[in-house]
Computed example of a mutant assay.
Amino acid sequence: MGLSPDSRARFNLERASVLVLDESGMGMSILVQILTGFGVKTLHRCESVAEAKDAIGKVEVDLIVCDAMGASGEGYDFVEWLRRSKIEPNCYVPVLLTAGHTPSTSVARARDCGAHFVMVKPLTPIAVLERIIWIAKEGRRFVECDTYVGPDRRFKNEGVPPGMVGRRRDDLQGDIGEAQSPNMDQDVIDGLMKTRLVEL
């Protein structure tokens, strides 16, 4: 997921308004240093979910960097509340979730609460910048249904699975059809995968 140094060098968040939610003073300090290093001048620092909810109702933000907040998981609950809050445009703002540990259950919870991306601590400036650029460039659509509100959880659009009806407007429909040429023999496939000695 690395980005070229050229694209990173041209990226500036000087005009961005960023809300940072982290109950840890040290975590907040690290995030503030990283974001101000990217040029961010408008930072809304919140040490509790209540402060963050209050700020969301008062100011418009361009990015939220939110900590998962340990075992209690208040950060996940905040993101889920944000997505369902209908406080526009903040309910659609990109959310970068940070966590001290990211087992598969935490990654699934971050995805299902409506976060754009989850990052494990300790954070490095280059990793944070690359995730912010990635979020800015990806352009995933928002999905709103009874069980989920947030960015489309599918990273790739590989079409509709065989035998299923597409739900996206731009899903390709129709039959794939029969093969136009014979399939490769297994011997040919094995030959392609076989290691060979090469003389230089």
Rank of each mutant, 00 (worst) to 15 (best):
44 H>E: 05
51 E>K: 05
46 C>Y: 05
92 Y>M: 15
159 G>F: 12
76 Y>I: 09
181 S>W: 13
166 G>I: 15
160 V>E: 05
153 R>M: 14
185 D>I: 14
151 P>D: 07
163 G>T: 09
161 P>W: 14
133 I>S: 07
176 I>C: 11
60 E>K: 10
160 V>L: 08
75 G>T: 03
119 M>K: 02
57 G>T: 02
117 F>R: 04
150 G>Y: 03
59 V>C: 06
63 L>E: 00
163 G>M: 04
83 R>G: 04
64 I>Y: 05
127 A>G: 07
172 L>E: 11
137 K>P: 00
155 F>R: 03
179 A>H: 09
49 V>Y: 03
178 E>C: 09
100 G>K: 03
149 V>M: 08
130 E>C: 09
169 R>V: 15
159 G>L: 08
68 A>G: 01
132 I>L: 15
130 E>G: 04
170 D>H: 15
44 H>I: 15
79 V>L: 06
154 R>Y: 03
41 K>E: 11
71 A>I: 10
106 S>I: 02
156 K>I: 14
162 P>E: 14
101 H>P: 01
104 S>E: 14
76 Y>P: 02
184 M>F: 13
139 G>F: 12
182 P>R: 12
174 G>F: 06
83 R>T: 07
154 R>V: 05
63 L>A: 04
175 D>M: 13
56 I>F: 07
168 R>W: 13
163 G>V: 08
114 G>M: 09
84 R>Q: 03
126 I>L: 14
97 L>M: 15
105 T>W: 02
143 V>Y: 08
147 T>Y: 11
159 G>H: 03
172 L>T: 06
42 T>A: 10
135 I>N: 07
116 H>M: 10
117 F>W: 11
81 W>I: 07
102 T>H: 01
126 I>T: 10
48 S>Q: 06
98 T>M: 05
115 A>D: 02
166 G>F: 14
148 Y>W: 00
52 A>H: 04
77 D>L: 04
185 D>M: 15
74 E>C: 02
120 V>C: 13
133 I>W: 14
51 E>S: 11
183 N>L: 12
170 D>N: 14
62 D>I: 09
72 S>Y: 00
180 Q>A: 06
99 A>F: 04
134 W>F: 13
82 L>T: 02
88 E>L: 13
89 P>V: 09
91 C>E: 04
131 R>K: 14
143 V>M: 11
120 V>P: 01
61 V>M: 15
123 L>I: 06
138 E>F: 08
185 D>E: 08
162 P>Y: 15
163 G>D: 05
159 G>D: 02
168 R>L: 15
101 H>V: 13
164 M>P: 01
71 A>M: 10
72 S>F: 01
157 N>M: 11
169 R>G: 15
71 A>W: 01
87 I>H: 06
67 D>P: 07
42 T>E: 14
132 I>T: 04
76 Y>W: 09
67 D>C: 07
93 V>G: 03
149 V>N: 06
137 K>A: 14
90 N>C: 08
171 D>Y: 15
85 S>T: 06
63 L>I: 09
59 V>H: 10
110 A>P: 07
144 E>S: 07
64 I>A: 13
161 P>D: 01
144 E>L: 12
130 E>K: 12
154 R>W: 07
41 K>T: 14
59 V>K: 12
69 M>A: 06
172 L>C: 08
160 V>F: 12
59 V>A: 08
105 T>Y: 05
